[in-house]
C-alpha cells in the first residue's frame, strides 16, 4: 500500500524579511534585462536566525529559458558569489528570486539547483524563493516568499510544492532614508537638516491634532469610547517624565545655554579662520 505523504512544515524557515535594497536591485535588474528575456532571476544573500531569513543582498544571474528547459549561468553565479563573500563573508546564499507573479514552470528546476547549492555549503536551511511581480499583473505590488516542500509517494518523490511563508516588508532602512526620496522618480534636492525637522514636526503636530479631536469626540459622546485606545493614550501621557516646573525650566535653560555657547564658539572660530586666511596669504613685505 502506498501512502501519499505530505510532510508537515517542520521547516527551519518560518518567515522572511526583505531589505529595501534587494527590491531595488531586482527592479533594476528587470529594467535592464536582455531583449527577449521574460523574467529575471538571481541569487539572494543574507542570513538566517531563529527561523527568520533576512534577505539583505542580491544579484541577478543571466539565464536562458525555453519551453521545457532552463539554463542558468552557473559560473557567473559562482564568481559573483565569491566576489560578494570577499566584501561580506557573513552574507551567504539564502535563496533565489524571480520576477513574475507566483511560481512558474521552470521554477522547480532552478529551485532544485539552489537546494543543491545550499546542501554543498552545509547549510541546514532550505532556500527561499522570492517572487516579485514587476508587471503588476494583479494590479498591486505582489511580493511573495516560498519554501518548497516535497510531496512523496512512499519513497518516490512526486512533486515539489511551494508553500508561501510570511514576508516582512517593513523596510526600516528605507524609512530611515525617507520614502519621500525613494518613492518619486526624481528628487531635485536632498532635504537638509531643517527641512526634515520641519516635516517631522508637521507630522507630530497633525498626530496630536488627531488625538485631540478623537478625545474630544469621545468626551462629547460622538464616538464610542474604546478602552484600548484610552489605555494607550494614558500610557503615552505617563511616559512624559514628571519634573517640577522649576527643575524643568532649569534643565531647558541649561541646554539652551549650551547650544547658544556652541553656536557662539563656532561663529568665533569661523571669524578667526577668515582673518587668519587674510593674514596668511597676504603678500609678505620684508
Amino acid at each position: 500500500m502506498s501512502v501519499l505523504q505530505f510532510f508537515p512544515l517542520a521547516s527551519p524557515v518560518q518567515s522572511a524579511r526583505l531589505h529595501a535594497v534587494v527590491l531595488f536591485n531586482i527592479c533594476d535588474g528587470y529594467v535592464r534585462r536582455p531583449d527577449q528575456a521574460g523574467r529575471v532571476i538571481g541569487t539572494l544573500l543574507g542570513s538566517v536566525s531563529n527561523g527568520v531569513v533576512e534577505i539583505k543582498n542580491s544579484y541577478a544571474v543571466p539565464h536562458n529559458e525555453s519551453a521545457d528547459q532552463v539554463a542558468l549561468d552557473v559560473d557567473y553565479h559562482h564568481s559573483m558569489y565569491l566576489s560578494h563573500l570577499k566584501v561580506n563573508p557573513k552574507e551567504v546564499i539564502v535563496g533565489w528570486f524571480s520576477t513574475g507573479l507566483g511560481v512558474s514552470g521552470g521554477s522547480a528546476l532552478i529551485h532544485d539547483f539552489y537546494v543543491k547549492e545550499l546542501k554543498d555549503a552545509h547549510s541546514s536551511v532550505p532556500p527561499v524563493h522570492l517572487t516579485v511581480d514587476t508587471s503588476f499583473m494583479s494590479g498591486e505590488a505582489c511580493i511573495k516568499a516560498y519554501v518548497s516542500v516535497n510531496l512523496t509517494l512512499g519513497d518516490k518523490p512526486l512533486a515539489a510544492q511551494f508553500q508561501e511563508i510570511p514576508l516582512d516588508l517593513r523596510m526600516i532602512e528605507a524609512e530611515r532614508i525617507g520614502f519621500d526620496i525613494l518613492k518619486t522618480t526624481t528628487v531635485d534636492k536632498l532635504p537638509g537638516d531643517l527641512v526634515g525637522m520641519e516635516a517631522s514636526m508637521v507630522r507630530l503636530y497633525s498626530l496630536i491634532d488627531d488625538i485631540y479631536k478623537y478625545v474630544n469626540d469621545v468626551v462629547e459622546g460622538r464616538l464610542p469610547p474604546d478602552n484600548k485606545i484610552g489605555r494607550v493614550l494614558a500610557d503615552t501621557l505617563a511616559s512624559v517624565p514628571n519634573i517640577s516646573p522649576a527643575a524643568f525650566d532649569k534643565l531647558l535653560d541649561d541646554k539652551v545655554q549650551d547650544n547658544v555657547a556652541l553656536i557662539y564658539l563656532t561663529s568665533l572660530i569661523r571669524t578667526q579662520l577668515s582673518a587668519a586666511e587674510k593674514l596668511n596669504t597676504a603678500a609678505q613685505t620684508l
Binding site: L23, C27, Y30, V31, L182, T184, T185, V187, K189, L190
Partner: peptide, 13 residues
C-alpha cells in the same frame, strides 16, 4: 545631488 528612481521602483515603493 539629485535622486532618481525608475518608474517601477517608484510604483513599488
Amino acid at each position: 545631488i539629485k535622486v532618481s528612481n525608475s518608474a517601477l521602483v517608484s510604483a513599488f515603493m
